[in-house]
Design a protein around this nucleic acid. Structure first.
Lengths: 149, 149
DNA sequence: GGTACCTGTCATATTAAATATTACAGGAGG
DNA sequence: CCTCCTGTAATATTTAATATGACAGGTACC
């Protein structure tokens, strides 16, 4: 039971961009260092966020910024930017049930109902978490552990 | 974004057990054929369900049965039986953020809040789906596509 | 015009996780 | 004592996630 860590990296980047894009040229290699991920991974993630209208980047320059205020960015937006229709692929289903068995023949259809319920609930939950609250959280945690240690 | 297909296989098995344990000796190889999975995988899944008190099996015999009525078995119970604390590992987090960066230093702590919210909501959603409704669904689908069809 | 640094996107490792397979000890029952 | 079953371990194999190296093209600065 595991969702790729891209979502966490994306949130890390968004916090970083929000906090520092005013004072620094935020580039993919800077974010790569901060997250400990490969720059190519970062560029892919930023590409997804850019296509979704969450951030803006300037080709050849960097200058990455949020394209809209943090209160208009939800966890759902981020997940969807990284993997469109990702929720639909949430539950894996065994691909070769026996067609001769009544259960095997219908299992894929039967599971649409329960899994649909969970997918819709999960989407709602993701939509309820906004970036501004995560940033608030970050500032709170930062204040408790100041740079000078 | 993907959760292992064990959950789907487990539901398949539970439906099968509920429908046929009265008239047949339900064994792991029978379930393996029906699901198209390996018997060992089935035995592992059944083992988890048994430990969780969802089904009972008789060592050396088979005779697999539901240990409690379908309305007392939720999707949450099943997921938890297969992978205890699985929800806590739902979101992957990049393991090596830079300790020198304010964001990198605190990201793991910061993410506890948003991910906690989603984990709790997801748990509630999983608890809201009960096996009896899935069985009802199965019977409905089966009726539409009869064995002879 | 050249240099430096950036983005965006290939193609291709490498790593880690899920699933499958083989094997075998031990229970149950005819 | 033979057969079929469970439970579990050790080990492939497959598939997905992540990392890496490479390069074309944009921008800015000198």
């Amino acid at each position: 039971m595991h969702i790729s860590q891209k979502c966490s990296v994306a949130l890390h980047c968004l916090i970083f961009i929000n906090e520092y894009s005013g004072s620094t040229n935020v580039t993919s290699s800077l974010l790569a260092m901060s997250t400990g991920c490969n720059p190519v991974i970062i560029r892919n993630i930023l590409g997804g966020l850019k296509n979704a209208g969450i951030i803006s980047t300037q080709s050849g320059v960097g200058n990455t910024k949020l394209a809209r205020p943090p209160e208009d960015i939800t966890l759902y937006d981020v997940c969807n930017a990284l993997e469109p229709d990702g929720l639909k692929k949430l539950f894996g289903i065994h691909p070769f049930p026996a067609a001769l068995c009544p259960v095997g023949r219908s299992i894929h259809t039967v599971l649409e109902m329960p899994y649909g319920v969970v997918q819709r609930d999960l989407a709602e939950s993701l939509k309820s978490v906004r970036l501004d609250s995560i940033i608030e959280q970050f500032r709170g945690v930062s204040a408790q552990a100041p740079p000078a240690g």
